[in-house]
Amino acid sequence: MLKIKNYVKVKSIAEAYELNQKKSACVLGGMIWLKMGNRNVSTAIDLSGLGLDTVQEREDEFHIGCMTSLRDLETNAALNEFTQGAVRESLRHIVGVQFRNCATVGGSIFGRYGFSDVLTMLLALDTWVELHHAGRIPLAEFAQMKKDRDILEAVIVKKTPQQSVYLSQRNTETDFPVLTCAVSLCGGRARTVIGARPGRAKIVEDPDGILNGLTEMPETERTGAVQKFAEYAAEHTTFGSNMRASEEYRKLLAEVLVRRAWETLGGMKR
């Protein structure tokens, strides 16, 4: 069981950062994951009084406060318009509305969980994280870093012109995913992310440029390119087994989901 000794509703991020330098301290997100653990927390740091719980649309970016609930992200009209509904699709399968009202974007991203739909989705966009100490760094870089004592203040989605599609496979509708897949054409560059491998979501590069100029290709060529890349992605991603599925099945799924996602994005499929 989780045991908490002190509970501090901080007045500033600086205060939170300072308190968090102790190893036994802990920043509270939505409490969903944290409360299941068996740990003794000396100081629980609550950021909920700092007004970091909203999505703000700015001229060139979406500023998503770390305490923004997954539900608010899911129902944010502007962000969903920007991503053609992909953000909503990436969130709506997560347990239930009440759960998503509790779980926070900061908690989901900071945890860098393997099963994370949110991480998969945001990696496909031009996403940055704002850390109190380390400042603004690309999400892709942050996702590879080890957990440290920094404080994640916000997630920034740049309004780089993009199209994106999100797909996931689940054993039941609201279970953790067996595999997640997000693809995007972001600033004209193709990006593919595969998550729940079951390891942390990873960007699959396209070094041979298979998808280069995808939208301009004639239909048959496009179909061939997408198929070729789907096979490439499945082949060049590492998968593992867990209680939800085997490595073998994940590989099969990856090819299907990557292909379908690109087919949708390429306008070959609704």
């Binding site: 239930g96 054993n171 039941t172 509708e173 609201t174 279970d175 953790f176 209680m243």
Partner: peptide, 28 residues
Amino acid sequence: LYEDIQYSKKGVIRNNSFMQYKIPTRLD
């Protein structure tokens, strides 16, 4: 379709919660 109690090699149940033992929801 999905309910399954799985054990580790040492006999520990892996589906020890509603997070890991999935029963149908109304969407299923």
